[in-house]
Design a protein around this nucleic acid. Sequence first.
DNA 1: TAAATTTATGCAATCGATTGCATAAATTTT
DNA 2: AAAATTTATGCAATCGATTGCATAAATTTA
Lengths: 342, 342
Amino acid sequence: MSDSGKEITIYDIAEKLKVSAATVSRALKDHPRVNKNTKKKIIKAAEEMGYRSNSFASNLRRKNSNIIGVIVPRLNSSFMSDVIAGIEKVVNDNNYNLIISQSLETMKKEISNARAMLNNRVDGLLVSLAYDTTSIEHFEPFIKRNIPVLFFDRIFEHEQYPQIYIDNFKAAYEVTKHLLEQGCKRIVHITGNQLRNVYAERLRGYKKALEEHQIDFDGQLVIINDLSAKEAAVAAETILQMDPLPDGIFTVNDVSAVSCIQVLKKAGIKIPEQIAVAGFNNDPAACVIEPNLTTVNYKGYEMGEVAANMLINHLANRQDLQQTHSLILRSELIVRESSKRK
Amino acid sequence: MSDSGKEITIYDIAEKLKVSAATVSRALKDHPRVNKNTKKKIIKAAEEMGYRSNSFASNLRRKNSNIIGVIVPRLNSSFMSDVIAGIEKVVNDNNYNLIISQSLETMKKEISNARAMLNNRVDGLLVSLAYDTTSIEHFEPFIKRNIPVLFFDRIFEHEQYPQIYIDNFKAAYEVTKHLLEQGCKRIVHITGNQLRNVYAERLRGYKKALEEHQIDFDGQLVIINDLSAKEAAVAAETILQMDPLPDGIFTVNDVSAVSCIQVLKKAGIKIPEQIAVAGFNNDPAACVIEPNLTTVNYKGYEMGEVAANMLINHLANRQDLQQTHSLILRSELIVRESSKRK
DNA sequence: TAAATTTATGCAATCGATTGCATAAATTTT
DNA sequence: AAAATTTATGCAATCGATTGCATAAATTTA
């Protein structure tokens, strides 16, 4: 009680109860080949003595860790924190533990995070790629060791890696189509690094919709930045200088859309009458900005749950990951005031 | 390469290089008592053979894990995801790993999370308490084992546990004082479980400001709920029924304030003319809602960094946690349109 | 009651890295 | 050249839980 140095082990319990450590070990994990009374006594003693199993010893011996690793670009975005919350829920319910690290959008850090995950012998890895990741070599050691790596949202098309995402092409197509149907002719598209599937696909969808409406694609109308509020404000200033002014804006995240709307409104532009705006993600702010933001709903929490479930089912041999190589989640266009022109 | 079953160990390297495992172990951690050339050879071989250190074996032997545990109520709030991001940054920079779990606001889950953290032999624990946690017995095993537990934000006043928070009393006092100075006489206070210091202290601050302005405290004006947007909307409806209508609202989080404003605006109430509103946290939405929300800025990212730094410095014996038992971070009132009546 | 079966327990090796102590080899000092 | 010192390496125990195999004890079957 007063002492802090001594950790209770199964040997201590064994000694006290005059049984072997093997029996203690079995009793504590409810092995059938242990007498009920013995079991009861052991569990009681363990409780009383304040025994806590040492996962290192256990993991070392069993050669698995019950740890799921997660590498994401950033933890503090509305979407990503929802994803993480969903993952944590599932992981915890299944008696796994969660190790989390963020790449801060750089490949360099992503690589070092991956190394750490390997050292920690994660049983499986969930990854959403950094902004500038150009290759996924750093995940090969996992494959080599048969440790499943699952990409979500920001994926990398590759046979070996199962993936979960939404149909970004279709979602962006629908957003753009909607804007066109509202009468927009010149739609600015604000997007991110085209290395990332999510942004490349959305640009494809944007183009496709234009094409179908016989509108020529104009590269001048595509703005690529880091998708921060700050850069979006800069983009909005650029937009204000355009002549003629565009009549629609489609940004690939809500943070940018909100930031744009604020700048445009301040400049006296009427949304949606002069410029209709649509975002992506359905962040909480989408329902706060005035006019409320048209966006794509795309629930992070669910994506997290699904990703974690897939991984854990696979680890428990309940499901083969190769069978379901790609899982595409539902997303939906939510039309709000920022784009409704009637 | 084709095989996945064999993990390289220091013994494999030792055998290949005809040295002992001890030498390999020392070489890999750059122990001075190893010949430079030997060291170089070993490191090279390790690299080539794809050696990855097994942290379980290492942790088991060294009796520390280099893991920091975090238990928070929820991961997906703007504030908490900022905190976690700050923690992750510091933890990662110091070559520690991060295990995260969420109590989902229940003491029951918090207890089970704490047990898991103990099994995982975290070197230190960062905790923000659940909504309904009434005792902190479940953290005693850590203290007994000399594992530092540090509370942040939602703390529990106790000698053994260092804590980091903001001066909630003062912040709330200032918010309330500001509202009073804008001419408010009847200020509704929407808050959470009074078990939690953050909410109890803010209520104290609210009362103090009233007292100083010779306004009697009216229990009818204090609404306690779970601080969700939904409950805030319900609260707003209640407020609309009040007769006379209050002329100010001070909520302990921005989510509630924003939700209230939306309901009140829809009911035709003019903000801030009829009812001035102030929140707490400075969520992104605070600058999006119209009118912009007066609130308390209180940066999560910084709190996360500071908490993690304190813990790690203590673990590295660079700092004694008992010395700095309480650390109070700066917060500031940000006055915006939602409360400015001139 | 002996034989066969079932149930309960223990032995001892194993997982992979670390480290105190001993010793061998190389270098310096006398 | 012998003695003393420094440098480099190895031996072997250790961390704590797990588990295949063996064996003892209890129970059932013949």
